[in-house]
């Protein structure tokens, strides 16, 4: 191990140490751990199978059952156990959250860094395209895309990624342009270093904190967009549960059976909140321009 990586390791440890002292970050992180555990262990910890429609899960008039008894959070309009649906819904939210956000981050980084590093025509074209994407109302675009590609889990992730990369690309573009003007990059160029070397050895490592911060905050945006698409009935296909489509399927009953909206709604808010809290703490700790502001 070289000295440099040693001190980097120490810096990283101190970031973690500082994060641990932030109660909001710890709260957010714990909720994320719970959600991930629920998603992985869903088949083990769920009381029932996610698609099982129980004949005793509906009243004779076809109304859902309130929380309590055999169904801890009540049943939905098909007589399925709501708790089981919510636990399994964590899988959908997290898989789409991670996949879509990963892809969006990849596209955003690629476009932002390329445009910021090369500038000129390439940069101009890429950034004008980014501007164009920013002028689209995101939800309308997502709805059109979802109609073209008939939705499935991965298509929904793809649609969200195609809508969500723009912000990341804008931020990384600005950071990259200011980085390339710094002396050490000019020095590298002077000694004839290739683009690949400069990009991967110098630019990307400097961008990493920003990417981590926006990557974490972006998961929250992604989770919310997935929930919204599912709420509009154009998200993942039934019977796969998603917190958004649980609300979509049951909202006609929300006055008589508000738990059918509240429980999945709370799940969405808590998961998105967790990623926001952790992302915010990371920003404070990792982003040099933000540090020491308060």
């Amino acid at each position: 191990m070289t000295n440099a990586s040693l001190s980097e390791g120490a810096a990283r440890r101190s970031v973690i140490a500082r994060l641990i002292r932030r109660p909001t970050a710890v709260f957010g992180f714990s909720l994320i751990v719970i959600a991930v555990a629920a998603a992985i262990l869903a088949p083990v910890i769920s009381p029932y199978a996610p698609d099982a429609q129980h004949f005793d899960g509906l009243t004779i008039e076809g109304a859902p059952l309130p929380p309590g008894g055999a169904y801890p959070l009540g049943t939905d309009l098909l007589g399925r156990d709501l708790l089981t649906r919510i636990i399994h819904g964590a899988r959908t939210s997290l898989v789409i959250g991670l996949a879509a956000n990963g892809l969006a981050l990849l596209i955003g980084t690629l476009v932002g860094v390329t445009a910021g590093y090369f500038r000129g025509w390439t940069g101009a074209v890429l950034m004008r395209f980014t501007d164009l994407m920013m002028a689209f109302p995101a939800l309308l675009l997502a709805i059109c895309l979802a109609a073209i590609f008939q939705p499935s889990l991965w298509i929904v992730a793809l649609v969200i990624a195609l809508v969500n990369w723009v912000q990341t690309s804008r931020i990384l573009y600005t950071e990259t342009t200011s980085l390339t003007e710094r002396e050490f990059i000019a020095a590298e160029r002077a000694i004839g270093a290739g683009h690949g070397r400069i990009l991967f050895r110098h630019i990307l490592p400097h961008l990493l904190p920003t990417i981590i911060v926006w990557g974490t905050l972006g998961i929250s945006t992604t989770v919310l967009l997935e929930a919204t698409l599912s709420y509009l009935g154009i998200g993942v296909q039934p019977p796969m549960p998603s917190w958004g489509n649980i609300i979509f399927e049951n909202q006609t009953y929300f006055q008589a059976a508000p738990w059918l909206v509240f429980f999945p709604g709370a799940a969405i808010v808590l998961l998105a909140l967790s990623f926001n809290l952790v992302g915010d703490a990371l920003r404070d700790e990792l982003d040099p321009t933000q540090r020491g502001r308060d």
Partner: peptide, 10 residues
Amino acid sequence: FVGVSAPQFV
């Protein structure tokens, strides 16, 4: 943060 984490339909 709860405000920015809550989907509008909820």
